[in-house]
Amino acid sequence: MRPLRHLNDMEDLWGMRSAGALIDLPSTGISVLRWTRTTGGPFEFNVATSPDFMLFSMVLQPMDACSRVDDAVIWDGPIRGGSVRLIDSRSIEHTGFESPSPFDLLHIHFSLDDLRLAARRFGLDFEDFEPNDGPLYRDDHVGRQLGAQFVAALDADGPAGRMYADGIAQSLVAHLLGNYGRVTSGAAQPAAHEGLQAAFEHVERHPHEALSVARLARLAGMSEFHFARRFKQRYGLTPHAHLVAARLRLAKADLAFSDKNILQIAMDCGFSDSSHLARLFRKAEGVTPQGYRQARQQ
Protein backbone atom coordinates (compact mmCIF):
# COMPACT_ATOMS: atom_id res chain seq x y z
CA MET A 1 0.00 0.00 0.00
CA ARG A 2 1.43 3.36 -1.03
CA PRO A 3 1.18 6.00 1.72
CA LEU A 4 1.16 9.05 -0.51
CA ARG A 5 -2.05 10.82 -1.44
CA HIS A 6 -2.66 11.72 -5.06
CA LEU A 7 -0.39 14.60 -6.05
CA ASN A 8 -3.35 16.89 -6.78
CA ASP A 9 -4.73 16.23 -3.29
CA MET A 10 -1.35 17.06 -1.76
CA GLU A 11 -1.18 20.31 -3.70
CA ASP A 12 -4.69 21.20 -2.54
CA LEU A 13 -3.65 20.63 1.08
CA TRP A 14 -0.60 22.87 0.66
CA GLY A 15 -2.51 25.48 -1.33
CA MET A 16 0.29 25.61 -3.90
CA ARG A 17 1.82 23.68 -6.75
CA SER A 18 4.77 21.48 -5.90
CA ALA A 19 8.12 22.68 -7.22
CA GLY A 20 8.79 19.15 -8.45
CA ALA A 21 7.51 15.62 -7.88
CA LEU A 22 8.64 12.06 -8.59
CA ILE A 23 5.91 9.63 -7.53
CA ASP A 24 6.34 5.93 -6.67
CA LEU A 25 9.90 5.28 -7.83
CA PRO A 26 9.98 1.66 -9.03
CA SER A 27 12.80 0.12 -6.97
CA THR A 28 11.66 1.37 -3.55
CA GLY A 29 8.16 2.87 -3.81
CA ILE A 30 9.59 6.19 -2.58
CA SER A 31 7.94 9.46 -3.68
CA VAL A 32 9.80 12.79 -3.64
CA LEU A 33 8.13 16.22 -3.54
CA ARG A 34 9.57 19.71 -3.24
CA TRP A 35 7.60 22.58 -1.67
CA THR A 36 8.97 26.09 -2.24
CA ARG A 37 7.60 29.41 -1.01
CA THR A 38 9.50 32.51 -2.09
CA THR A 39 7.59 35.19 -0.15
CA GLY A 40 7.11 35.86 3.54
CA GLY A 41 3.90 36.29 5.49
CA PRO A 42 1.72 33.89 7.50
CA PHE A 43 1.51 30.32 6.20
CA GLU A 44 -0.13 27.35 7.91
CA PHE A 45 -0.26 23.68 6.90
CA ASN A 46 -2.11 20.90 8.74
CA VAL A 47 -2.85 17.38 7.60
CA ALA A 48 -4.36 14.20 9.03
CA THR A 49 -1.75 11.47 8.80
CA SER A 50 -2.22 8.10 7.10
CA PRO A 51 -1.41 4.58 8.36
CA ASP A 52 2.04 3.22 7.51
CA PHE A 53 3.15 6.73 6.56
CA MET A 54 6.80 7.70 6.94
CA LEU A 55 8.27 11.01 5.90
CA PHE A 56 11.90 12.05 5.64
CA SER A 57 11.71 15.85 5.60
CA MET A 58 14.64 18.07 4.66
CA VAL A 59 14.85 21.84 5.14
CA LEU A 60 16.79 23.08 2.11
CA GLN A 61 17.15 26.69 3.28
CA PRO A 62 17.00 28.29 6.75
CA MET A 63 13.49 29.09 7.95
CA ASP A 64 11.43 29.88 11.03
CA ALA A 65 8.63 27.49 11.93
CA CYS A 66 6.28 26.36 14.66
CA SER A 67 5.81 22.60 14.22
CA ARG A 68 2.87 20.77 15.77
CA VAL A 69 1.94 17.14 16.39
CA ASP A 70 -1.69 16.64 17.42
CA ASP A 71 -2.30 19.37 20.05
CA ALA A 72 1.34 19.82 21.05
CA VAL A 73 3.95 22.30 19.83
CA ILE A 74 7.15 20.31 19.31
CA TRP A 75 9.31 23.02 17.74
CA ASP A 76 9.10 26.81 17.69
CA GLY A 77 12.00 28.77 16.27
CA PRO A 78 14.64 28.84 13.53
CA ILE A 79 15.62 25.71 11.61
CA ARG A 80 19.00 25.46 9.94
CA GLY A 81 19.26 24.72 6.24
CA GLY A 82 20.17 21.08 5.63
CA SER A 83 18.39 19.84 8.77
CA VAL A 84 16.34 16.65 8.47
CA ARG A 85 13.45 15.14 10.42
CA LEU A 86 11.93 11.66 10.32
CA ILE A 87 8.13 11.54 10.90
CA ASP A 88 6.15 8.38 11.70
CA SER A 89 2.37 8.94 11.64
CA ARG A 90 1.47 5.75 13.50
CA SER A 91 2.02 7.56 16.80
CA ILE A 92 0.26 10.79 15.74
CA GLU A 93 -3.04 11.79 14.17
CA HIS A 94 -2.28 15.27 12.79
CA THR A 95 0.89 17.10 11.89
CA GLY A 96 1.57 20.56 10.55
CA PHE A 97 3.51 23.76 10.87
CA GLU A 98 3.20 27.53 10.71
CA SER A 99 5.86 29.76 9.18
CA PRO A 100 6.21 33.50 8.57
CA SER A 101 9.24 33.02 6.32
CA PRO A 102 9.95 31.73 2.82
CA PHE A 103 10.83 28.04 2.77
CA ASP A 104 12.21 25.30 0.56
CA LEU A 105 11.34 21.78 1.73
CA LEU A 106 12.08 18.35 0.30
CA HIS A 107 9.65 15.63 1.40
CA ILE A 108 10.49 11.97 0.82
CA HIS A 109 7.51 9.66 1.43
CA PHE A 110 7.76 5.91 1.92
CA SER A 111 6.13 2.97 3.71
CA LEU A 112 7.63 0.52 6.16
CA ASP A 113 6.43 -2.41 4.06
CA ASP A 114 8.48 -1.17 1.12
CA LEU A 115 11.53 -0.75 3.34
CA ARG A 116 11.15 -4.23 4.85
CA LEU A 117 10.99 -5.64 1.33
CA ALA A 118 14.11 -3.71 0.33
CA ALA A 119 15.93 -4.96 3.43
CA ARG A 120 15.02 -8.59 2.71
CA ARG A 121 16.65 -8.30 -0.71
CA PHE A 122 19.93 -7.89 1.17
CA GLY A 123 19.22 -10.61 3.72
CA LEU A 124 18.37 -8.13 6.50
CA ASP A 125 15.64 -8.62 9.09
CA PHE A 126 14.44 -5.05 9.52
CA GLU A 127 11.63 -4.50 12.02
CA ASP A 128 11.22 -0.76 12.39
CA PHE A 129 12.77 2.68 12.66
CA GLU A 130 13.88 4.28 15.87
CA PRO A 131 15.61 7.63 15.37
CA ASN A 132 18.28 8.44 17.89
CA ASP A 133 17.16 10.52 20.86
CA GLY A 134 18.14 14.14 20.33
CA PRO A 135 16.97 17.31 18.60
CA LEU A 136 13.81 17.16 16.49
CA TYR A 137 15.71 18.50 13.48
CA ARG A 138 19.09 16.85 13.12
CA ASP A 139 22.22 17.37 11.06
CA ASP A 140 22.54 14.37 8.72
CA HIS A 141 25.46 14.90 6.35
CA VAL A 142 24.72 11.89 4.14
CA GLY A 143 20.99 12.61 4.08
CA ARG A 144 21.75 16.19 3.07
CA GLN A 145 23.92 15.01 0.17
CA LEU A 146 21.23 12.61 -1.03
CA GLY A 147 18.66 15.40 -0.76
CA ALA A 148 20.79 17.62 -3.00
CA GLN A 149 20.93 14.79 -5.54
CA PHE A 150 17.14 14.42 -5.40
CA VAL A 151 16.83 18.15 -6.14
CA ALA A 152 19.03 17.68 -9.20
CA ALA A 153 16.86 14.75 -10.31
CA LEU A 154 13.71 16.86 -9.90
CA ASP A 155 15.29 19.54 -12.10
CA ALA A 156 16.12 17.01 -14.83
CA ASP A 157 13.63 16.45 -17.63
CA GLY A 158 12.04 13.21 -18.75
CA PRO A 159 12.87 9.58 -17.95
CA ALA A 160 16.53 10.33 -17.23
CA GLY A 161 15.63 12.31 -14.12
CA ARG A 162 13.36 9.52 -12.88
CA MET A 163 16.04 6.88 -13.47
CA TYR A 164 18.58 9.02 -11.61
CA ALA A 165 16.15 9.52 -8.72
CA ASP A 166 15.46 5.78 -8.52
CA GLY A 167 19.16 5.13 -7.94
CA ILE A 168 19.32 7.85 -5.27
CA ALA A 169 16.27 6.33 -3.57
CA GLN A 170 18.08 3.01 -3.23
CA SER A 171 21.02 4.82 -1.63
CA LEU A 172 18.64 6.56 0.76
CA VAL A 173 17.10 3.23 1.76
CA ALA A 174 20.57 1.88 2.58
CA HIS A 175 21.30 5.03 4.61
CA LEU A 176 18.04 4.81 6.55
CA LEU A 177 18.47 1.10 7.27
CA GLY A 178 22.03 1.60 8.44
CA ASN A 179 21.57 4.76 10.50
CA TYR A 180 17.92 4.91 11.58
CA GLY A 181 17.00 1.23 11.67
CA ARG A 182 16.23 -0.99 14.62
CA VAL A 183 16.00 -4.78 14.92
CA THR A 184 14.40 -6.20 18.07
CA SER A 185 14.41 -9.82 19.20
CA GLY A 186 11.37 -11.77 20.35
CA ALA A 187 12.94 -12.14 23.80
CA ALA A 188 12.69 -8.40 24.32
CA GLN A 189 8.91 -8.33 23.90
CA PRO A 190 7.79 -9.27 27.47
CA ALA A 191 9.95 -6.55 29.02
CA ALA A 192 8.63 -4.04 26.48
CA HIS A 193 5.03 -4.99 27.29
CA GLU A 194 5.69 -4.58 31.01
CA GLY A 195 7.09 -1.10 30.41
CA LEU A 196 4.08 -0.12 28.30
CA GLN A 197 1.67 -1.38 30.94
CA ALA A 198 3.52 0.56 33.66
CA ALA A 199 3.19 3.77 31.64
CA PHE A 200 -0.48 3.07 30.85
CA GLU A 201 -1.32 2.50 34.52
CA HIS A 202 0.66 5.55 35.64
CA VAL A 203 -1.53 7.73 33.43
CA GLU A 204 -4.65 6.08 34.86
CA ARG A 205 -3.52 6.74 38.44
CA HIS A 206 -1.99 10.21 37.96
CA PRO A 207 -3.73 11.98 35.04
CA HIS A 208 -3.51 15.33 36.83
CA GLU A 209 0.31 15.30 36.72
CA ALA A 210 2.36 17.10 34.05
CA LEU A 211 2.97 13.96 31.98
CA SER A 212 4.88 14.28 28.73
CA VAL A 213 5.57 11.53 26.21
CA ALA A 214 9.25 11.84 27.16
CA ARG A 215 8.49 11.17 30.83
CA LEU A 216 6.24 8.20 30.05
CA ALA A 217 8.85 6.79 27.67
CA ARG A 218 11.47 6.95 30.42
CA LEU A 219 9.06 5.15 32.73
CA ALA A 220 8.63 2.43 30.09
CA GLY A 221 12.39 2.23 29.50
CA MET A 222 12.15 3.16 25.80
CA SER A 223 12.98 6.03 23.50
CA GLU A 224 10.11 8.43 22.77
CA PHE A 225 9.77 7.22 19.18
CA HIS A 226 9.73 3.52 20.05
CA PHE A 227 7.40 4.08 23.03
CA ALA A 228 4.84 6.11 21.06
CA ARG A 229 4.75 3.54 18.25
CA ARG A 230 4.48 0.51 20.56
CA PHE A 231 1.89 2.22 22.77
CA LYS A 232 -0.45 2.89 19.86
CA GLN A 233 0.03 -0.63 18.50
CA ARG A 234 -0.84 -2.17 21.89
CA TYR A 235 -3.66 0.09 23.08
CA GLY A 236 -5.06 1.54 19.86
CA LEU A 237 -4.49 5.20 20.74
CA THR A 238 -1.56 7.54 21.20
CA PRO A 239 -0.09 8.26 24.66
CA HIS A 240 -1.40 11.82 24.38
CA ALA A 241 -4.92 10.62 23.52
CA HIS A 242 -4.84 8.20 26.48
CA LEU A 243 -3.79 11.03 28.81
CA VAL A 244 -6.56 13.32 27.54
CA ALA A 245 -9.15 10.55 27.96
CA ALA A 246 -8.01 9.87 31.54
CA ARG A 247 -8.17 13.56 32.40
CA LEU A 248 -11.64 13.86 30.91
CA ARG A 249 -12.88 10.91 32.98
CA LEU A 250 -11.55 12.62 36.10
CA ALA A 251 -13.19 15.90 35.08
CA LYS A 252 -16.54 14.17 34.47
CA ALA A 253 -16.45 12.72 37.98
CA ASP A 254 -15.74 16.16 39.47
CA LEU A 255 -18.50 17.76 37.40
CA ALA A 256 -21.00 15.16 38.53
CA PHE A 257 -20.09 14.80 42.20
CA SER A 258 -18.33 18.00 43.36
CA ASP A 259 -19.27 21.66 43.68
CA LYS A 260 -15.91 22.92 42.38
CA ASN A 261 -16.05 25.58 39.67
CA ILE A 262 -14.99 24.77 36.10
CA LEU A 263 -11.60 26.47 36.38
CA GLN A 264 -10.72 24.56 39.55
CA ILE A 265 -11.76 21.28 37.94
CA ALA A 266 -9.64 22.08 34.89
CA MET A 267 -6.56 22.81 37.00
CA ASP A 268 -7.08 19.78 39.26
CA CYS A 269 -7.40 17.46 36.26
CA GLY A 270 -4.25 18.60 34.46
CA PHE A 271 -5.71 21.02 31.90
CA SER A 272 -4.02 24.38 31.37
CA ASP A 273 -7.21 26.38 31.93
CA SER A 274 -11.00 26.18 31.66
CA SER A 275 -10.95 26.92 27.91
CA HIS A 276 -8.61 23.99 27.33
CA LEU A 277 -10.94 21.71 29.28
CA ALA A 278 -14.04 23.06 27.49
CA ARG A 279 -12.56 22.55 24.02
CA LEU A 280 -11.49 18.95 24.60
CA PHE A 281 -14.61 18.11 26.62
CA ARG A 282 -16.96 19.34 23.90
CA LYS A 283 -14.97 17.47 21.25
CA ALA A 284 -15.24 14.21 23.21
CA GLU A 285 -18.72 14.50 24.75
CA GLY A 286 -20.59 16.85 22.42
CA VAL A 287 -21.52 19.22 25.27
CA THR A 288 -19.73 21.81 27.38
CA PRO A 289 -18.57 20.94 30.91
CA GLN A 290 -21.32 23.18 32.31
CA GLY A 291 -23.91 21.50 30.11
CA TYR A 292 -22.73 18.08 31.27
CA ARG A 293 -22.96 19.16 34.92
CA GLN A 294 -26.47 20.52 34.48
CA ALA A 295 -27.65 17.35 32.75
CA ARG A 296 -26.23 15.19 35.55
CA GLN A 297 -27.90 17.29 38.23
CA GLN A 298 -31.37 17.11 36.71
Rank of each mutant, 00 (worst) to 15 (best):
P3Q: 10
D9L: 09
D12E: 06
W14N: 02
G15N: 00
A19F: 00
L22C: 00
T28P: 06
T28Y: 01
V32P: 03
P51Y: 06
M54F: 14
M58H: 12
V59N: 03
D64W: 14
D64R: 15
A65H: 06
S67H: 08
I74F: 02
P78H: 11
I79R: 04
I79E: 03
G81A: 01
S83Q: 08
R85I: 10
L86A: 01
S91Y: 08
I92M: 12
H94K: 15
F103H: 07
L105T: 05
R116V: 13
R116C: 12
L124V: 14
E127Q: 15
E127K: 15
F129N: 02
R138Q: 06
D140E: 00
V142C: 00
V151C: 04
A156P: 01
M163K: 09
A169F: 13
V173Q: 04
L177Y: 08
L177T: 10
N179F: 12
T184F: 11
A187C: 02
E204H: 10
A217L: 05
R218K: 12
G221L: 02
M222Q: 04
L237D: 06
T238Y: 13
H240Q: 14
L243T: 15
V244I: 15
A253N: 15
L255P: 07
K260F: 10
I265E: 13
S272F: 05
D273E: 09
D273A: 08
L277W: 07
